[in-house]
Simulated scan of single mutants.
Amino acid sequence: MSYAIVGFGKIGQALARAFARSGIEVSVATTRDPESFASTAAAIGPTIIPKKLAEAVKADIVFLAVRFEAHRDVAKALPTWQGKTIVDVTNAYGVLPEDLGGQPSSRAVAQAFTGGRLVKGFNHLGAAVLDQDPAVHGGKRVVFLASDDDGAATEIGALAENLGFSPIKLGALSEGGLLVHARGNSWGQLIFKDLVKFD
């Protein structure tokens, strides 16, 4: 299984650190030349591999850590996303509900990534919290996952566990997904909830 993070701002770097802590190799890409962020990637760890966007999107699982408005540009990197799982880490705060066709933001993202399996996840934690080791107070930091494809949600749940998090599946995008998305000037009820699960 291969992994990539598209977007290397605060959220993308926080995700990269989670992969580095677990010693899992992940490609990182932006629309810029990889050399422009190679030193930042190297500072995070040797398993963080800067690549061009066209190369990074060859991964099996792609984390979308760009501004919501940029998701369509990333989707154009491949003619079809068949066989790939996209983890939507975006938040559409400030985007008018009518611009989303009245649907959850992640459903709009899913439509752009033709053929791919989309999981909404990792977006409810701020970058400063996501950046921290998820092992806290003897428990594990929770990440919420929502998807219309239960198999994809299970796959990303297993990855979340490998990264040290405790995944909680919320169901479909039009149900549980509404709890962790933003649009207009409102946030879902679970956004910014920093919860810890104890065994």
Rank of each mutant, 00 (worst) to 15 (best):
60 D>V: 07
106 S>I: 05
19 F>E: 02
88 D>I: 04
57 V>Q: 05
153 A>C: 04
165 F>C: 03
58 K>E: 11
150 D>M: 10
12 G>T: 01
60 D>N: 09
104 P>V: 03
69 E>R: 13
80 T>S: 15
96 L>F: 14
177 G>C: 10
85 T>C: 15
105 S>W: 01
20 A>E: 08
174 S>R: 12
109 V>W: 04
114 T>P: 10
122 F>G: 00
128 A>Y: 00
18 A>H: 06
151 G>R: 03
84 K>I: 15
6 V>M: 13
190 L>R: 03
198 F>H: 05
137 H>F: 14
29 A>W: 14
100 L>A: 09
20 A>V: 01
20 A>D: 08
134 P>G: 08
155 E>Y: 15
158 A>V: 14
24 I>T: 05
145 L>M: 06
108 A>L: 11
131 D>R: 00
82 Q>N: 11
122 F>D: 00
120 K>G: 09
86 I>N: 03
53 L>H: 01
105 S>P: 05
172 A>E: 10
22 S>L: 05
110 A>Q: 09
30 T>P: 12
196 V>H: 10
133 D>R: 00
87 V>R: 13
103 Q>L: 13
13 Q>T: 01
29 A>N: 11
77 A>G: 06
76 K>G: 09
148 D>I: 01
16 A>N: 04
54 A>D: 10
166 S>I: 06
97 P>C: 07
152 A>S: 01
74 V>Q: 07
102 G>Y: 13
143 V>I: 07
9 G>A: 15
135 A>M: 09
177 G>K: 02
183 R>T: 09
112 A>T: 00
14 A>E: 00
1 M>G: 07
162 N>F: 09
47 T>G: 01
134 P>Q: 01
4 A>H: 06
187 W>F: 15
66 V>P: 10
27 S>P: 12
49 I>S: 08
14 A>Q: 01
102 G>H: 13
157 G>N: 02
54 A>Q: 12
158 A>N: 14
106 S>T: 02
55 E>K: 11
169 K>W: 13
71 H>N: 15
2 S>T: 14
144 F>W: 12
50 P>T: 12
42 A>E: 07
20 A>H: 00
111 Q>F: 15
96 L>C: 08
198 F>R: 03
59 A>T: 00
50 P>L: 13
